[in-house]
Design a protein around this nucleic acid. Structure first.
Ligand SMILES: NC(=O)c1ccc[n+]([C@@H]2O[C@H](COP(=O)([O-])OP(=O)(O)OC[C@H]3O[C@@H](n4cnc5c(N)ncnc54)[C@H](O)[C@@H]3O)[C@@H](O)[C@H]2O)c1
Ligand SMILES: NC(=O)c1ccc[n+]([C@@H]2O[C@H](COP(=O)([O-])OP(=O)(O)OC[C@H]3O[C@@H](n4cnc5c(N)ncnc54)[C@H](O)[C@@H]3O)[C@@H](O)[C@H]2O)c1
Lengths: 220, 220
DNA sequence: CCCGGCTTGTGAATCCGTGCACAAGGGACC
DNA sequence: GGTCCCTTGTGCACGGATTCACAAGCCGGG
């Protein structure tokens, strides 16, 4: 389930805040979901709650981590040392959450060799060596859209089996490779869709009073 | 539907490549989804296809844009001018896709005043002025996790009605405000979940042959 | 003008995720 | 030891999304 990481995040926060026991109701509140859903999700891990009491936070964290495969670190390699690649590589939260940057590669000669967040940018030809020497399983694509498929192919050829793609391109990979895509523009467009629906709703209600006047006018 | 932006993206690419007509089958191929789903999604916009021929790319792009509310630009304001905020503000693809950066704000005095991607960083106290003078409807949160809720409150107070949150924190807002969250760690954890399942599967099959030996050992 | 082939649009069956409601069970207090 | 209260775990019903399959419809060629 895609909600487990969210639970993990908030449980970790609660644990740091000194909370040792928590009910499904409280988790639901913090995760902004239904309490029954929380219990269903957690029961999927096994019956680790105590009726009448709730869940032991520390134990639950461990169980979720086990389920997600977070019992050890997963090294990550970033392809593309541009704007985004640098932000990602320089972002400390990566390693803190169990995903240290094992390497970052690029094709551009002026990028190769520079130091980002303590990691040196290498040429993409070194990808296979990096992946295999560091036992990297996850690759992150931060190249321009047209290069994304090439990057994916290179990652797969190097032995990576999971890919996180930030480029606005749908990439394909052999069966057995996990791919996830994060597309900024898609997120914004979904928001604008809702904005537009709200604007339309306002307009329809106002229409009866003043036909022709638009709600939130978007004048230049 | 959350798939419309994906269709839009790939249709735009096809249009640029000179394709003027396209079938649901081809769209499905490019979007990596079922063809019937594509037709259902598109029929939701109205009956804009021609039986026996397919869809006219340009017209379809226009219809999807209309549905998504992309007939005009939506200005965006970024809260937090750190690592990520700077990458976002400096990213040209934002404006190209109809979401120009209308402003970027921060609390830190050493950030305020600097120029990023042609936009000057302003103090968060100016948020309301920026939002209202530029008619901004969408806010992007790029602050550290603990400050995310404050940022959201400030955005809502300033009049923003949609929020895209990059911080690993669940934020709450009044009813009627759209919120979307993009959490890097969650994406990586989902990938690691699949990795781990693959590793387990390998281990189970190997177990019969060599009990005790682990598949992809994560030593040190 | 008619016919055959191709693609859309959509009814219907199905599947999956969600949420309700409640029985089962554990703990604390008496 | 008993009882009461609180919370978990889950059977069940519901709704939306997905997929199949096919009739309807358009176009080009004969
Ligand atoms: N910058 C952002 O905030 C942001 C936000 C969302 C999405 N994106 C997406 O992320 C991707 C990268 O954005 P960016 O702003 O960092 O772009 P960028 O142009 O700054 O960086 C791209 C980097 O990729 C390298 N590159 C090009 N082809 C390559 C290849 N075949 N193999 C390896 N490296 C290659 C380039 O040398 C460059 O360094 C784009 O697809 C963009 O749409 C960026
Ligand atoms: N950098 C990345 O690649 C990356 C990737 C994924 C997620 N994130 C998330 O994005 C957020 C920002 O990451 P970052 O690397 O840019 O961090 P950062 O520390 O570089 O930048 C945070 C910025 O927010 C500002 N800030 C703090 N409190 C604020 C407030 N109340 N109002 C306005 N501004 C405030 C700070 O002054 C700072 O400039 C974090 O939550 C992080 O988890 C970052």
């Amino acid at each position: 389930m895609a909600r487990l990481p969210v639970y993990l995040q908030l449980l970790s926060e609660q644990f740091d805040a000194g909370v040792s026991n928590i009910s499904s109701e409280e988790i639901a509140e913090l995760a902004a979901v239904n309490a029954a859903k929380v219990r269903k999700d957690l029961s999927y891990l096994g019956s680790y709650g105590t009726r009448g009491v709730g869940y032991e936070v520390e134990f639950l964290i461990f169980q979720i981590k086990r389920e997600l495969g977070l019992t050890h670190d997963w090294h990550v390699v970033i392809v593309g040392a541009g704007n985004l690649g640098q932000a990602l590589a320089g972002y400390g939260g990566f390693g803190e959450r169990g995903f240290p940057v094992g390497g970052i590669v690029d094709v551009a000669d002026d990028k190769v060799g520079s130091l980002i967040g303590g990691v040196r940018v290498r040429h993409i030809d070194d990808l296979q060596h990096i992946v295999q020497s560091q036992n990297v399983a996850i690759g992150v694509i931060a190249t321009p859209g047209p290069a994304a498929q090439d990057a994916a192919d290179a990652l797969v050829a190097a032995g990576v089996t999971s890919i996180l793609n930030f480029a606005p391109t749908i990439i394909s990979a052999p069966h057995g490779i996990s791919i996830r895509k994060v597309d900024l523009a898609v997120e914004l467009q979904i928001l604008s869709y809702h904005e537009q629906r709200r604007a339309n709703a306002r307009q329809s209600t106002a229409l009866k009073a003043v036909p022709g006047a638009s709600g939130r006018g978007a004048s230049a």
